[in-house]
């Protein structure tokens, strides 16, 4: 029986590790488009929604996101990567908050504060091609600490 103990132990530990992963949330589930996301920040999950999924294809759409900050965001950087087979094939990064000149409402908030953001987002593409895409979104502060991290899975079906 002893022989089995260590694999079992490993299995249990692995299970424990897995159990800290956050659940997958559904953003959109329509006929031709499905969007799911999962938080990849070990510290916390967050809430995210898109007002009308159909609008994604018409350029500008409204998003809502809420979370509790674990780190201050006097400075905030956004990094979006389109992943293919685990590798980034397309990247986009932007500085959202600067120490002076807080353009966004949430800029300058400190650790522990609650963030609720509601606003339009432009994708900058006119159509989502058919297929399954993974998009990784990361928000880091000026100290390179992870403020938020999410992996989106976007599945696009083309209707006949």
């Amino acid at each position: 029986v002893k022989m089995f103990n260590s694999p079992i132990l490993l299995l249990v530990l692995f299970y424990l590790r897995l159990s800290t992963e956050w659940p997958t949330h559904t953003v959109c589930k329509e006929n031709n488009l499905e969007i799911y996301y999962k938080s990849c920040d070990p510290l916390q999950d967050f809430a995210f929604s898109i007002d009308q999924c159909a609008n994604i294809l018409t350029n500008t759409f409204n998003i809502r996101a809420a979370m509790i900050l674990r780190h201050s965001i006097t400075e905030l950087f956004l990094n979006v990567n389109l992943m293919l087979n685990g590798k980034s094939v397309l990247g986009y990064s932007k500085k959202l908050c600067e120490p002076n000149g807080h353009r966004f409402l949430f800029c300058g908030k400190k650790k522990g504060e609650h963030i609720y953001y509601e606003g339009p987002v432009k994708l900058g593409i006119h159509a989502i091609p058919k297929g399954v895409f993974k998009v990784s979104v990361k928000l880091n502060n000026g100290d390179h600490l992870t403020v938020a991290c999410a992996e989106f899975t976007i599945t696009r079906y083309i209707q006949q």
């Binding site: 029986v1 089995f4 103990n5 079992i8 132990l9 299995l11 249990v12 530990l13 299970y15 424990l16």
Partner: peptide, 22 residues
């Protein structure tokens, strides 16, 4: 037989580890 025997062990062990980790 061994595998069947080890199943309760596994259960006890895993719950023990869960408890310990808490």
């Amino acid at each position: 037989g061994r595998g069947a025997l080890s199943f309760p062990t596994c259960l006890v062990l895993s719950s023990a580890i869960l408890f310990l980790s808490q």
